[in-house]
Design a binder for these strands. Structure first.
Lengths: 215, 215
DNA sequence: CAAAAACCAGACCACTTGGTCAAGAGTGGG
DNA sequence: CCCACTCTTGACCAAGTGGTCTGGTTTTTG
């Protein structure tokens, strides 16, 4: 029984694991893996350092567990779209999804960014493979749109890169954005930025911007 | 006299300083500040560790010196543009500039990104002020274009953020891009990506894409 | 109600790492 | 040639850090 115990959500163990992961997400996002002290995570989680190491074998183990959680965010609606769907709607929703993640999970986004900048040393080849095959599928759908004359874009890869870059930018570079705007992005600002981005990308692809009210 | 000595470019000291900075740029980009060992920098520069500390007071001093070098890249042609200039040309050139920096100085771009993600703890308020006032000027010019009906964009800020995001993405996320494309970006790929991006942004702003051959 | 498992936490340690020191080796101008 | 200055380098150290150990307390379970 004990092995399954921690899968339940209401045990004290599951609760602490959750607290630790949440604390670790903030600390790793702010200081990177090497720059984060286990003690800092413990402090933030309001637990003694020893407890952190009790629930997770090591600092690296904790980081990897966290990373796995974070990677599960990298799936969204666009996953199921097919060539028959309307590109404008699909892309608009995908962009809105990505922006919503940036807004609600900025630390997760930052950790992912840090990981990639450092050459993705900890991304499992499982994730990489999965990610690559997801990409192939999506590129394929986009290419069909292009071939059908629905999309004025030359290369599907660049389109996706541009969407990722712009949407993640709001999370990853929030310090710069806040500094330059003079105030942090509120949720209305995010709504503006999202609408702006949707229009830029869609118009840039020769599409008409669909109504806002469809998810 | 000794104080000016290191400003000369051909002394042994200037040479070593240069080697150390170059080595540090690579190491810091790959491992972040906390994750980089002074010894690693020394090894890459092919000098004993003590020498690194001889030329730069401390690891932090070295990092700050490097950062200052890097920040000097954040100026470009767009700086001198006025509301009388043609927005399509100015923006296209600005995007090309940014992409060129991503291609030729990816490590510098990564270090800047790491710095921002971590909340920009080491950016001098001098740089921040300078950056903010640059921003105000540029936003002003863009706003004039908008007011004159030359540019179909609602907010100048978001336009600039989007340009930065997309162009820096190619440097900062090169590991992901390489993984997904199956091969690293060559200079022809960069040319393609640049042209693609210029078209996306300009068309997205309701502009016509000018000829490639003007810098 | 035991016994076993899960949880808690202070004391402690091996090791890494930035940085210092001191002693010497080049080097250039007067 | 000598003297001041720059440069080089091995030996060394104090502080910080991830992680263990041990002994205990609480919770679960048969």
């Amino acid at each position: 029984m004990k092995q399954k115990e921690y899968l339940k959500d209401d045990t004290i163990g599951a609760l602490n694991r959750h607290k630790i992961l949440a604390a670790a997400e903030q600390e790793f996002a702010l200081n990177g893996f090497a720059g984060t002290r286990v003690q800092q995570i413990a402090d933030r989680a309001q637990l003694p350092k020893t407890n952190v190491l009790y629930y997770f074998k090591s600092k690296e183990g904790l980081y990897l567990a966290l990373l796995e959680d974070i990677l599960s965010l990298w799936n969204g609606q666009f996953d199921e779209a097919t060539a028959e769907d309307d590109p404008a709607t699909v892309l608009a929703n995908y962009i809105r999804d990505k922006m919503e993640i940036s807004r609600t999970r900025p630390d997760a986004s930052k950790i992912f960014a840090l990981e990639i900048i450092n050459g993705a040393p900890n991304l499992s080849s499982f994730f990489k493979d999965q990610h690559a095959s997801w990409m192939k599928d999506r590129v394929n759908v986009i290419q069909q749109w292009i071939d059908a004359g629905k999309l004025a874009v030359k290369d599907p890869y660049y389109l996706l890169f541009n969407i990722w870059a712009t949407s993640q930018h709001y999370a990853d570079f929030s310090a710069q954005i806040t500094g330059l705007r003079g105030k942090p992005m509120g949720s209305e600002d995010y709504a503006d930025a999202t609408q702006n981005l949707v229009e830029l990308i869609l118009v840039g692809c020769g599409l008409k911007v669909p109504d806002v009210n469809n998810s």
